[in-house]
Structures are given as structure tokens and as C-alpha cells.
Design a protein around this nucleic acid. Structure first.
Lengths: 248, 248
DNA sequence: CGAACCCTTGACAGAAATCAACTAAGGTGG
DNA sequence: CCACCTTAGTTGATTTCTGTCAAGGGTTCG
């Protein structure tokens, strides 16, 4: 593991409050590895052996069934994924693949379980992390069930704009096909819908999005913190925040 | 609170491993209440004050947006709901209403948070509960994104049959309109789809479902433990289990 | 008995998936 | 350096699915 990585992990919400001894024990069993783009890191159904921490690059969480596939989330630095499976010692519900060259820390699930039995502070951090993940998926499911495709797209674009610091123009952080799958539609549909959103205050040029009429777009999207997530602190102050898609 | 209720709560996975002292403290602040059918217990967006434990009756968790509404889950005895919101001290993401006369135990969220900071065993139980809830919603979302309406219905019926002890015939545990909303479709659509499933080995008469050709239905549903949930132990032995829809 | 309400059915309109063709961009290898 | 191949994205035509609106039968409950 690289020298700068340990403190970076240590500062994650999940690890920042635990005892130093617990952290050191956890890190003794952990190791880092760099993977090329497009590599399948884990496959759904496999037993959960390691908690994964993304240090660099993007990782897609996706699910398959009956030959179909859909994107569930994208994890960016510094985020973790498949915590729940590790805790339950249960098979992964999702697969993970690198979208680009990625550096990942792997922490043995057994160490994880052993330590939160002994370190209450760590247990509390795990609780908070899990509760956050849970709420993120609930919001995702709400969006799928309550909003139409166009509304989901509009909300997503508005959200990205807010996360980028309330800027009117930004670049999509992922490929459109992936975005389509994440939003629960086909690439063709996303393409057409994006064009049709021209009339709702959005211009799209390649991967660049320009919000030309925020009020009109907002009227369609009807953003709601109970679906889109809470407004990040400092967003109003123009502080740029990473467009993290947490759900792991 | 009634005399038989305390030990019942004590035996819940969430409370069975905690220190006796912690449990007593938690129960001191708790109180029970009986609500009539159709009552809105909590509204999404409200601050999370109490963890709810269902002792009797059914409670629907649902979500609203833009005048639309959908069912997210049904909680039955003895199950809890909105644990995550209580932990994060965040607004509820879902509303809850009684489907029938229901008896509910209310546990102050602040007590909850205070106690798992002191009682590691309880913290571990909360972790396991949350991880389970998280995985339940992920499975729900997977079903919505990967399966068509007919496939979701077929899977649901097959699942209910298994939970009832692998019986070929059973009664739907909820109203069809609610089931439709839970499965992500309109009541009209469910009605039509159920009729069309006649050709796939299912007969429906009112709320009674008869699986006439399990192989054929299974070929459509393609049940998968990574979506439908793990097979309950003892199911093969014919042990009847309650058709619990946990997700809270 | 009447008033809701659930469920069903039909007709229709709108949305989305599918199939197919085409463009454009990026990377590979000659 | 260029020809070639692969892949993302777009667009169009078509079909399938789904939601909406409307009406009617049946049940429950006050």
C-alpha cells in the first residue's frame, strides 16, 4: 500500500472513529491492487470475502438476470462497496467491474466482522454507513417507481448540476449507455429523451450538458430531497463537490 | 405494554443479544399503542422520532411524489420499520399506514442511538438488521430493473407458494391493488397480467392462487435467490413460514 | 339501503423496447 | 500514415407494453 493511502482510508467516515489499534489490525490483513479497465472484480453470487475501497478510478456495480444486465451504482474515490454482503457473510447481490484503471484496497471480511465485535466506535460507524447505503437504495427505488423516464433524467441532470456547484454546464461523469441503464431505460430511449428535453431547458452536446432554463427543467424534475438526496452543505456557497454516486 | 409483549420483543433478532440492562433502559422509554385500520402512522419527510415495532396487524410502507404513490413494503408481526432514519436522525423516506387494526411499540430514536453507543452487542445486532434491510431493497430494485411485469408477478407468486410451505394453493396476503403498486404496476395491469398467466400455470380466483403447473410458471419466473431472497430453511421439510415482506 | 371501494374489462393513447441502419470517434495493426 | 475494426451514440420504423379513462359488477360497511 502506498504511504499516502493509509491516512486517506483512515479519514473515511467508516474508519475515522475507530480505535487506532483496530485500524492497524484491519490494515495488516488488507492489501492494495491496481486493476486494468473493464475488469470484473466480483461476480454476483460469489461469497463475500473482501470489503473493497476504491482509491482511484471508477467501479460500476451492476446486476444480471436471465441474460439481462443493469447498472445499480458507480463508486468513486474514496468510497467502499459491498459492505453489507461482507457483514452478513452472504453472497454478493451485485457484480463489480472497473470502468477505468482502478486502484482498490481489499479488506478481509472476517477481519471486519471480528473488529466491530470488539470496537464499538467502529460498529457505530458501520451502522451509519449501512443506514446511509440503505437510504440511498430506497431513494433509487422510489425514483424508479414514482417517476417517468423523462422525470428521472431531468432529476439526474439537475442533481449533477447541483453537485458540481450549481453550475449551468457540466460533463456527464459516465457513458450514456451506463447512465441509461442506471436510470432504468435503454440507450436508445435515453438518447431520444435527451433530445426531447431540449424543450424543457436542457441542451446536450456529446457528454456536455447545458442547462439553459433551470426553472423549466426544475418544473419537470420536481427535485425532492427524499428521492434525490439531501442538498450538500456548501452547495449554495458554490463549493464544488465530487458527483459521488454512493450505493454500495 | 402487555405482559407477553416484552419477551416477544426481547426475542427479536434486533434485541435478543443486547445486555439486559440496555434492554430495560430501552423499554422504559418505549410505549405501546393500538391504532385503527387505515391510519397514517408516519409521513415521509417527518423527523424520525421513534423506531416502530409491529406486534399485531399489517403496516404498509409507501412513498409519495408529485401526487403519485407507491407501496414499498408491508411489515408484519414481529417486524420493525424505519430503523435507518432513526439511526441517521434523518427525515423518514417513506410513509407508513396501518392496513388493519395494529398494535405498535414505539421506541424513542434518541434512546436507541444512545444505547448502541454503549452496548456493542446491540450495535452488532443493528448492523445485521440494517445489512439485511439493505439487501432486501437491493433485491427489490433488481427485480424492478431486470424483470418485466409478468416476470415479477410470476416470481412473487412462486415465492409466496414457497414461503407458505411449497403448497400449490394459497391466499394472497394483501389486496391486489397494493400488490400491484408493490410490484410496480397499475391495478388494471395486474388484473390483466394475472389472467394472462393462466397460460403459464396459474389460476387465480379472487384472492386465491392455484399453481397448476409449477414447472411452467418457474420457467417464466426464473426464480433467483439474489432477487427473490434466500430459500428459507425448513421449506423443503414443509414447515410453514409467515410470508414476511421485510424491508424497513 | 346506499355509499364506498375493490376488482375487472374494454377502448384508447402514450411510452418504451426492439430491430435495423448509419455516423462518428478511438484504437489497432499493417 | 492509413486502412480497418470496434464501439458509443443516434435515428427511424415497428411492435409491445403500460398507463389512462370509463364503465360495470360485486362486496363491505355504516
Amino acid at each position: 500500500m502506498r504511504p499516502h493511502e493509509l491516512p486517506e482510508i483512515r479519514h473515511l467516515p467508516l474508519f475515522r472513529d475507530m480505535l487506532q489499534g483496530s485500524f492497524e489490525t484491519l490494515m495488516q490483513g488488507a492489501y492494495a491492487q491496481t486493476f486494468p479497465a473493464g475488469l470484473e472484480l466480483i461476480r454476483q453470487g460469489d461469497p463475500a470475502d473482501f470489503l473493497h475501497v476504491v482509491m482511484e478510478g471508477q467501479v460500476e456495480l451492476h446486476a444480471q438476470w436471465a441474460g439481462r444486465e443493469c447498472t445499480m451504482a458507480v463508486v468513486r474515490p474514496v468510497g467502499t462497496f459491498i459492505l453489507a454482503a461482507c457483514i452478513r457473510d452472504a453472497p454478493y447481490l451485485m457484480s463489480a467491474r472497473t470502468l477505468e484503471r482502478a486502484r482498490i484496497i481489499l479488506i478481509p471480511a472476517s477481519d471486519l466482522r471480528a473488529i466491530f465485535h470488539r470496537d464499538t466506535e467502529f460498529a457505530v460507524s458501520v451502522i451509519n454507513e449501512l443506514a446511509g447505503c440503505y437510504r440511498a437504495v430506497v431513494r433509487h427505488a422510489k425514483g424508479l417507481k414514482l417517476r417517468t423516464s423523462r422525470e428521472r433524467i431531468a432529476s439526474y441532470l439537475l442533481r449533477q448540476s447541483v453537485l458540481a456547484g450549481n453550475v449551468p454546464s457540466f460533463v456527464l461523469p459516465v457513458e450514456k449507455r451506463l447512465l441509461a441503464s442506471y436510470l432504468g431505460m435503454t440507450p436508445e430511449n435515453l438518447s431520444r429523451a435527451l433530445k426531447s428535453l431540449d424543450a424543457e431547458g436542457v441542451r446536450v452536446d456529446g457528454s456536455r450538458v447545458i442547462i439553459t432554463d433551470r426553472a423549466k427543467l426544475s418544473a419537470l424534475a420536481r427535485p425532492d430531497p427524499l428521492i434525490d438526496g439531501p442538498d450538500p452543505e456548501g452547495a449554495s456557497a458554490g463549493v464544488a463537490l465530487p458527483p459521488v454516486g454512493r450505493l454500495g
